[in-house]
């Protein structure tokens, strides 16, 4: 490998607490960049708001730290603006599944060609520990002193149902596998959703819990089989890690729009104005 992961890191020191799962994500993503020998200036990372969304500042790539919940629309615009870029959307579970939850089905529907990495710590960390859409029911925090009353989302099942063409789960406790999943997601010609179980060491430490229940996908899991992927996703007592589903045959969105442009008759402003002559 001629590129090193460290070559993708900026001088900015992450704001994350020592032991935060997001460090592993940062390492794994830069390793994936290095393994693909991507040029720094050809990468752009878009994020929302939250601890994990500070991500782009720690990278020596183009980046945007946008408003809360909108990394997918930003990344979609960037990719369509310049399809030759490697564009990655990142954020947390609050950013992605709560305020920004409405964008995931549409990114999937479009099959926009970029990975979306959600660092899922099952909690709002930056605002100091309120239940998130993936918190277990009954979680007691200051904002839920009697226990949260909502059921957690199942992000893998949800994104599979949306028709996402690449669905995977990784765990910060297994960084090597995560880097490989990121590499595959970057190579996938379409929308790639990766849920990373990335514990919040300060407000909701789930390292031990996830170490206990995380397993590789069952031997012989066929990632082309949507039903098998859904069956594996339905299993919540065990959290499977790996690529649940993958369909590389669908045309990515930027390519579709390129085809529209290619097929459209070339017009000049004058010819269009002429159509409006009385």
């Amino acid at each position: 490998m001629s590129r090193k992961a460290s070559e993708y890191r900026s001088h900015v020191k992450p704001i994350w607490c020592p032991g935060c799962g997001d460090y592993a994500v940062l390492n794994a993503l830069t390793r994936a960049f290095a393994s693909l020998e991507l040029r720094n200036e050809n990468i752009m990372v878009a994020s929302g708001i939250g601890c994990s969304s500070r991500f782009p500042a720690f990278l020596k790539t183009y980046g945007i730290h946008g408003v809360h919940g909108r990394p997918l629309p930003l990344a979609t615009g960037i990719k369509l603006g310049n399809p030759s870029l490697t564009v990655v959307a990142v954020g947390g579970d609050g950013d992605g599944f709560s305020i920004g939850g409405g964008h995931i089905p549409h990114a999937a529907r479009r099959n926009i060609d970029l990975p979306y990495i959600v660092m899922d710590n099952n909690i709002y960390g930056m605002t100091k520990g309120q239940p998130s859409p993936t918190s277990p029911r009954g979680l007691q925090r200051k904002a839920s002193p009697y226990g949260s009353q909502e059921r957690p989302l199942n992000p893998i099942l949800m994104t599979l149902a949306y028709g996402t063409t690449f669905v995977a789960r990784a765990f910060s406790g297994q960084p090597k596998q995560m880097a490989d999943i990121f590499r595959q997601a970057l190579l996938h010609p379409g929308f790639a959703f990766v849920q990373v179980l990335s514990p919040c060491i300060t407000f909701h430490n789930t390292y031990d819990h996830y170490r206990e229940i995380c397993r590789p996908l069952p031997e012989g899991h066929n990632a082309q089989d949507l039903q098998a992927a859904m069956t594996a996703a339905l299993e919540t007592e065990t959290q499977y890690l790996g690529i649940f589903y993958r369909d590389d045959q669908q045309l990515p969105y930027s390519r579709r729009l390129q085809l529209l442009r290619d097929r459209a008759p070339k017009l000049t402003l004058e010819t269009v104005l002429d159509r409006f002559r009385r």
Binding site: A46, I78, G81
Partner: peptide, 20 residues
Amino acid sequence: VQAEDEIAAINMAIGGSIAG
């Protein structure tokens, strides 16, 4: 792009603009 809502629309436009 017909976006999923106005918030997505304007953020996409910002993304497209940043990309050039």
